[in-house]
Amino acid sequence: MTRGLTSATTPGKSRFDDIYNEPDPRVYFRRLAPLEYEIPHHAQDVFRRTRADRAAAHGGADGPVTVLDLCCSYGINAALLNHHLTLAELYAHYTSPETEALTTEELIDVDKEFYASRRRADATPVIGLDAADRAVSYALAVGLLDDAYAENLERHSPGPQLRRAVAGAGLITVTGGIGYITHRTFEALLECARVPVWVTAFVLRTVPYQSVITSLAHYDLVTRTDYSRTYPQRLFTGPAEQRSAVEQTLSTGYDPTGLETEGRYHTQLYQSRPRPRPA
């Protein structure tokens, strides 16, 4: 697919299908760099804090908090969660002349050392889920993911191995997938849960999220957000995408003034946690 195509799930939104399932992330970073794609940067500290809060809330009874990252792509959220790295450093790494000259196999060898040398002492297991099989294979090969599944839960039930993996996940994260995945994916995953699960989702303001909130409530998860704060995602690809985004933002009940009208997609952060039990 080309940049000029639009998304079927978010009308008017440019598609980047050609970068999501390459053998490695170099094309992904080269394409998104000019658009200043930045939401993983904003998610980094949020995911770390939420992981710590989830561990503290349950007294470590379940062991280290296993994170399930939805639409995980090349493992970028896992890289930022578990390593002494910034998103800017990842852009620099994957767009550098040194990595450009490597084959994918050579890059995998380089990246194994790159990530291992930056591993944080508080790193915890991360499971990746994405329909893009080559992307998750890369993330698994370089050690960003402890387990990875290329399954589409919008169309199929989770396989037995995914079910077993999800059973121990304490935190579900997502930065860029809502709209491509819906309440169906969350329901399929929560059916597999065997420990208390928290959900942290960054959602484009152009995409309705209420159906997911309603589904999570059926599993006794209460969802909250701070409507006064947004997190920028990326620049628009052009005036047509911006006009469509402004219209979609209005249709979901948000005011685009000073945000989408200024040239960028913005996201809302939703935190879903188990309903407090009566004392």
Rank of each mutant, 00 (worst) to 15 (best):
L171N: 07
D109Y: 03
A148L: 00
E38N: 09
A121F: 12
T173Q: 09
T261N: 07
L87F: 11
E22W: 06
D18C: 11
L140S: 13
W198R: 15
L140I: 06
Y20K: 12
L90M: 10
A56T: 13
S137H: 14
H183A: 01
Y270M: 03
F47D: 04
V126Y: 02
T252P: 00
L216E: 00
A148M: 03
I178W: 00
T206V: 04
T124P: 04
L216Q: 01
F47W: 12
V222G: 01
E247Q: 13
R224I: 06
L235N: 12
V212Q: 00
Y94E: 07
R264K: 14
T6S: 12
F29Q: 07
C192M: 04
T257Q: 09
L204W: 02
S117R: 15
T173K: 07
S96D: 07
E38L: 09
V136R: 04
H266S: 03
N82V: 13
I76Q: 08
T99S: 14
D109W: 09
K13A: 15
S137L: 12
N21G: 09
R164P: 09
Y74S: 09
T200G: 07
P125K: 03
S137Q: 15
D17S: 13
E113G: 14
E98D: 15
F202L: 11
R275A: 05
L221E: 10
R26G: 09
T6V: 15
A245D: 06
L162A: 01
R275Y: 03
Y37S: 10
V207S: 02
S157K: 14
S228N: 13
S211I: 00
D62Q: 04
A101R: 15
P64I: 06
P125N: 08
N82S: 13
P232S: 03
D133M: 08
A33R: 15
V166N: 00
A132G: 01
A188Y: 02
L145S: 04
Y91A: 08
T214A: 01
P23H: 08
L259S: 08
T249C: 03
F236N: 00
E105P: 01
Y115H: 12
N77V: 14
G143Y: 07
H41Y: 12
T9A: 13
T230K: 04
Q44S: 14
P160W: 11
A150K: 00
V222F: 06
G263P: 06
